[in-house]
């Protein structure tokens, strides 16, 4: 049968979000899109729009201010989607670990599929990570994926699921760290 799934990895569109990084990895991401590494040859487009993207490239250790946005952007991405944590600080907190205003890695908030280590990561690694992520993407189902915190169940009305308010504001729930 004509299998639509195999096209997922042929056209990965990227949403790039900076959750408080030092911009080191952001520059590397841009470098990997630019002519020298040319990520576009895999069909990658940097859309900047969560509603049309498949891969969520996050850099930075998640500062307090950016928690809500991270979850909100994540919930606005349609399934199937994968999350790539780019850079050491994104994976574990890296050089920012245990600081008073950061959350030590994005996997406290959203499920991560690929971790790319390095401070800063090299474009080759990013490309490698994206290709890995594509393999995962191909296997994913269209089930709703949920954030780990700041998230509540979606309501459904007449069979239509309403995701409008599933991502919460920081003050709205009691959080234990």
């Amino acid at each position: 049968m004509f299998d639509l799934k195999k096209y997922r990895k042929k056209s990965p569109w990227i949403l790039h979000y900076n959750a408080g990084s030092c911009n080191g990895c952001d520059i590397e991401i841009l470098a990997s899109l630019a002519p020298k590494y040319d990520l576009e040859r895999f069909g990658v487009i940097n859309t900047g729009n969560p509603k049309q993207s498949d891969i969520f490239l996050v850099t930075g250790p998640v500062t307090y201010r950016s928690r809500e946005r991270l979850v909100e952007l994540y919930t606005q991405m349609p399934e199937p989607k994968v999350v790539i944590a780019v850079g050491s600080c994104t994976c574990t907190g890296g050089v920012f670990r245990d600081m008073y205003n950061v959350e030590d890695g994005i996997d406290r908030y959203i499920p991560v599929d690929v971790y790319i280590a390095g401070c800063a990561v090299s474009p080759e690694l990013i490309i490698d990570g994206v290709v890995k992520a594509l393999e995962i993407l191909e296997k994913k189902s269209k089930e709703m994926e949920k954030a780990l915190k700041l998230f509540k169940e979606a309501t459904s009305e007449n069979g239509v699921i309403n995701r409008r308010n599933v991502a919460l504001k920081v003050g709205e729930v009691h959080e234990e760290n």
């Binding site: 729009n49 969560p50 509603k51 909100e72 919930t75 606005q76 709703m144 979606a154 239509v160 699921i161 309403n162 995701r163 409008r164 308010n165 991502a167």
Partner: peptide, 8 residues
């Protein structure tokens, strides 16, 4: 089949 979602 479509879910309702918030504006970007």
């Amino acid at each position: 089949k479509a879910d309702r979602v918030k504006e970007y």
